[in-house]
């Protein structure tokens, strides 16, 4: 099995690569849309329903000890996505560390001690409601809504309602993270399996498996998934027509492959 030129292995290598890519893509297809888009719509809906000026989702990056802004909506949200704050500090940090929600307003600090992150974004909120995004006992991140319009603070009712939004967001994030981890899990499984039966995968094969799918291909597949979603929203006749067109195209693709490889 260590012969790099073995045609069977070459084929297996391609098949495995395709399988992993297909799994990742089909997994992503089970989400209503791309995970980011879903999270954006969740924070926007939350901000509108609670009558809040802004809302955002931060995800835990444990190795770096930070919380990263994943999506943001509303006032002060410009350029916030991608920004990191320390995991063990501040209100969002407290929520991530404790796994408990908090409603806080009118934070007034002695000016000599003011090191608040919010100042650096040019936007200092008056009231904050933050709740953890949980997958079981694991804290994935924090969802926060800022500045209730027409009210001085968020109440307990808001805290409970935000918990419901947070569950939806956590579900989407957890699913997306699991899918991202799927390829890695498969490779580890394969390596373990090969090791346990005394077979070593060739370096060539390992390299092929470990290679990230080409960004172009990944984006194309993602686009395809989105188009398929569009189809699912069409009427029955339109769906059938779209399916027919796709089937014809897939048949054409197969014939082309046979011709070029000389098989079949």
């Amino acid at each position: 099995m260590n012969e790099p030129a073995d045609p069977e292995e070459t084929q297996l290598k391609h098949e495995l690569g395709r399988l992993i890519q297909a799994l990742e893509t089909s997994g992503k297809a089970t989400l209503p849309s791309s995970a980011n888009e879903l999270l954006s719509s969740i924070v926007e809906a939350a901000a509108r329903i609670f009558g809040a000026a802004a809302a955002s989702i931060l995800l835990v990056n444990e190795p770096d000890g930070v919380l990263e802004f994943k999506v943001a909506y509303g006032e002060g949200s410009r350029d916030l996505v991608g920004v990191s704050i320390p995991l063990n500090q501040g209100i969002a940090g407290y929520v991530a560390m404790s796994g408990q929600p908090i409603a806080i307003s009118d934070v007034d600090r002695d000016a000599r001690f003011n090191r608040d992150f919010a100042r650096s974004t040019g936007y200092v909120p008056r009231s904050i409601l933050a709740t953890p995004l949980m997958a079981g006992e694991r804290v994935l991140g924090v969802m926060e809504i800022l500045d209730k319009i027409n009210a001085p603070a968020f109440g307990m009712q808001d805290m409970e309602l935000l918990g419901i939004f947070a569950r939806q967001a956590a579900l989407a994030i957890d699913q997306a993270q699991r899918i991202e981890g799927l390829g890695v899990a498969m490779l580890t499984g394969l390596e373990n399996l090969a090791g346990s039966v005394g077979v070593r995968l060739s370096d060539d094969m390992l390299a092929a498996l470990r290679a990230k799918p080409e960004p172009g291909i990944q984006a194309d597949l993602q686009k395809l998934v989105e188009v398929l979603h569009e189809f699912s929203r069409l009427g029955e006749l339109e769906r059938e027509l779209a399916l027919d067109v796709l089937s014809v195209f897939a048949g054409y693709g197969k014939r082309q492959r046979r011709l070029s490889t000389g098989s079949g």
Binding site: G90, Q100, P101, I102, A103, I104, S105, D106, V107, D108, R109, D110, R112, F113, N114, R115, D116, A153, G155, M156, M159
Partner: peptide, 20 residues
């Protein structure tokens, strides 16, 4: 535990809510 004025970070105070 509801809407209490409590001490907060950096010699500050805040209004907060919770069983905490």
């Amino acid at each position: 535990g509801i809407d209490l004025r409590v001490a907060w970070k950096d010699h500050g105070y805040a209004t907060s809510t919770g069983n905490s």
